[in-house]
Amino acid sequence: MEIAINILLVDDVEYTRELLRSILLSCLNEQKITMTAKFSHSSTGLDIPKRITDEKINLVYLDIELPTTTGLTVLKQIRQAHPDMMVVMVSGESSPDNVTNSIKMGANGFIVKPFNSDRVIESLKAYIKKEYKI
């Protein structure tokens, strides 16, 4: 079985997006099934629901702190337009409010920056298990 995943990384810091991309690629290379990934990036969080549709995104990693909006606002927009989309929130601020609000609003996970590779890998495996029952 070959799996192709379109992943959208939303973070205002390019280094953070590239680090997350690198961890995800490493995880993909370790899988026992053939997997490929196409990555899209956003630094602002604007027009994310439209981009999800236009770019056929399967999985979103979404920062809470963005320059033009908040990740929670974007999460709400995603849930309205794409209720089954897997969205993993990422933040340098792991306050109980951030985590609780994210989960209440429909996030499928929460990863604290700096990234723990194991948590990123767990989120990708959760997506694969949910979508492909592997």
Rank of each mutant, 00 (worst) to 15 (best):
K133H: 14
L28I: 14
E14Q: 10
P96C: 06
V99H: 03
E30F: 05
N101W: 07
D84I: 09
G92F: 06
Q80R: 01
D63G: 03
K76P: 02
M35Q: 09
I3C: 06
R17W: 00
S123D: 06
D63W: 01
I103L: 14
T73Q: 11
I103A: 09
D84P: 03
N108I: 00
T70P: 00
A4L: 11
M85K: 14
L66M: 11
T34L: 12
L8T: 13
L19P: 00
I48S: 03
E18H: 11
L59A: 05
V10L: 06
I121F: 05
R51A: 09
K129G: 04
L24Y: 00
N6F: 05
T68Y: 06
S22K: 08
D63A: 07
L124N: 07
S42N: 08
V87Q: 04
C27D: 13
E30P: 05
L124K: 01
L75I: 08
N108V: 02
T53W: 11
P96T: 13
Y15L: 12
V13D: 09
V10Q: 04
I57L: 05
S42W: 01
S91V: 10
G45P: 05
G71Q: 06
I33F: 14
T70D: 04
D63H: 11
L72G: 00
R119E: 14
L25V: 08
L8E: 12
I48E: 02
R119A: 08
L124A: 05
E93V: 13
K56V: 06
E55Q: 15
K129Y: 13
V87Y: 04
K133D: 14
K113R: 15
L124T: 12
M105K: 10
D118V: 10
L20G: 03
N101S: 10
S40T: 13
S117L: 02
A37C: 14
K50N: 13
E18I: 05
E55A: 10
I5H: 03
S43A: 15
R51T: 10
L72F: 14
R79F: 09
E131N: 15
K38I: 12
I5F: 03
K38V: 12
D63V: 09
G71E: 02
I103S: 00
L46T: 10
Y61K: 07
S102E: 13
N29T: 14
I121T: 08
